[in-house]
Amino acid sequence: MDQFNQALINGIMLGGFYAVMVLGFSIIWGVMGVINLAHGELLMVGAYLTWMLNKGWGWEPFAAIIIVAPAMFALGYGLQYVLINRIIERPPLISLLVTFSLSIIIANVVKLIYTATPRSVNTMFDGFWRLGNITIPVTKSVVLVAALLIMAMLHLFLQKTRLGKSIRAAAQNREAARIVGIEINHVYAITFAICVALTGVAGMLISPTQAVFPFMGPPLTLKAFAITALSGLGSIPGALMGGMMLGLVEIFIATYVPGIGTNLGIVASFVILVVVLVTRPQGLFGGLKPVEQAH
């Protein structure tokens, strides 16, 4: 029973991170129709920024948000301006190829600068809480709380602000949004920048809990894709549910299947992804856009 409870708690903590990690990916997809395969790499850049601040100036990783968020926002705005702008509203494979290339470029630039050595980030929120026989790492619970806070703020932003409403309108109907006077290119640029900032912050959140290295991206991108298949595009409650599902599946496999460890988490998410897509092309809870062949 303790083992079960422990797995449940661990799964929820991991799931909270997954939920906040997937949002940038799923909103970009929903609003701009771009499947951003460089998602994991952008997250990795956020994690590296945190590591630099932590190592170089002794910053607390969670305080790095004041640098990471604006820096990543600027990076996202620049990327959108130079590259992503050219692939919006083009066939999905073009955007796949371009963002796939982008992911390789980012990973290798980071490797060139910082080498492939895994880095670790120290935090003062270490140690454990004990609840009976269950141990809860303080860092991970802080990550969970921060993730929930960020999601709540994002939700308020999308529901209450003018800009947020424009973003939602653009996601639902590009042409209509254009007609009612929303400047769609501006919305795209802001959306991409916000999502990259969000992704960078997710990288910041994960940095104290795992090794930071240039090639940590691809599995995260794939998990983001799997969660999006579960949750639908751009939905915050959906992301929370999908993230929790994947987190729980991963932890329970690692707990109950002997001799495997968490490496097979990626296999689990892949199996979920393929099964969901094959049996329900609209995503588990609907909302994934079916891909119509160009003709």
């Binding site: 494979l93 794939l222 460890g261 097979l264 296999v267 897509l277 891909v291």
Partner: peptide, 25 residues
């Protein structure tokens, strides 16, 4: 191969990454 367009591409990328882990395990 029942998946269309980008879904197929990503599913195959997933196959690839998953297989690497399976071989490692």
């Amino acid at each position: 191969l029942r998946l269309k367009g980008p879904y197929f591409s990503i599913a195959m990328l997933g196959t690839f990454v998953a297989m690497r882990e399976i071989v490692r395990v």
